[in-house]
């Protein structure tokens, strides 16, 4: 397969040196079957072993190789260099996250937000552990779309509201909250809606919609947040009209 040379312009940030992140150019040979992650690995293996970035599965499942490629949040393992159609490919760390080193960002804040919506099945009584909780295909279909989230955080990088209000719970955590609220086995909707019906919850969203555009799994977090606004309002009105209701 024919090779050609292009320039990878990659963000470098050395935590021990401090200062501001800078760009470093690497001229590398590429083929049409190479994705951006292949380019980064070529640099790491043959040009500069100090370049630091996260990756794991190489097949769009683990969600760890997200970066801003030519200004847009993408999974580097799913972005073909040929599709970018440029002689200079700019690779930067995901926006709206602190940078730890080069392309590696600190996502502790995201994990805390995710934990706050309790992304697991909640039941008051698990009953008989040997019993199966039957679900019909339509039950699965109700939350299938949100369950495809791989926590890649591209949606957080794309969301200008997260940039302006870092306390905002954000798109992926909201989508996963809806995933469990819609699960027929779950009984934790009230707890999650109480968390989301706050100033830093779903009401912070102004529906820019870019989170759904960049999502590599078509989870549609923007749509999920609007549904959560409806559910939160419904719960609020129910509690207002029927004191004691959950």
């Amino acid at each position: 397969m024919a090779e050609r040379e292009i320039v990878f312009r990659v963000t470098r940030y050395r935590p021990t040196a401090g200062g501001r992140p800078t760009f470093q150019d690497y001229r590398i040979p590429v083929r049409d079957d190479m994705v951006v992650l292949d380019g980064l690995n070529y640099i790491k293996d043959h040009v500069d072993p100090s370049l630091t970035f996260r990756w794991s599965c190489r097949m769009g499942i683990c969600g760890s190789c997200g970066a801003n490629v030519d200004g847009r949040p993408r999974l580097t393992c799913g972005t073909y260099i040929r599709d970018l159609g440029k002689r200079i490919v700019k690779v930067e760390p995901l926006s709206n996250f602190p940078i730890l080193k080069d392309l590696v960002v600190d996502f502790d804040d995201f994990l805390n937000k995710l934990a706050s919506v309790k992304p697991h099945i909640i039941r008051k009584d698990w009953g008989d552990w040997t019993k199966e909780y039957t679900q019909y295909p339509e039950d699965l279909e109700a939350y299938r779309q949100q369950s495809l989230c791989i926590n890649c955080m591209l949606c957080y990088a794309a969301c200008p509201v997260v940039g302006a209000s870092p306390e905002f719970v954000g798109p992926a955590a909201s989508a996963l909250a809806l995933r469990y609220i819609r699960d027929t086995r779950d009984e934790g909707a009230a707890e999650r809606l109480a968390r989301l019906n706050t100033k830093t919850g779903v009401w912070e969203c102004t529906f820019v919609g870019e989170c759904s555009v960049v999502c590599p799994k078509d989870v549609d977090p923007a749509g999920a947040i609007q549904t959560l606004k409806f559910l939160a309002t419904q719960r609020h009105m129910r509690r207002l009209l029927m004191p004691g209701a959950r």
Partner: peptide
């Protein structure tokens, strides 16, 4: 976290 570069929204982001 020491020495991490804080998240900053760029001016003219829109």
């Amino acid at each position: 976290m020491p020495n991490e570069y804080p998240a900053r929204r760029r001016s003219g982001w829109w």
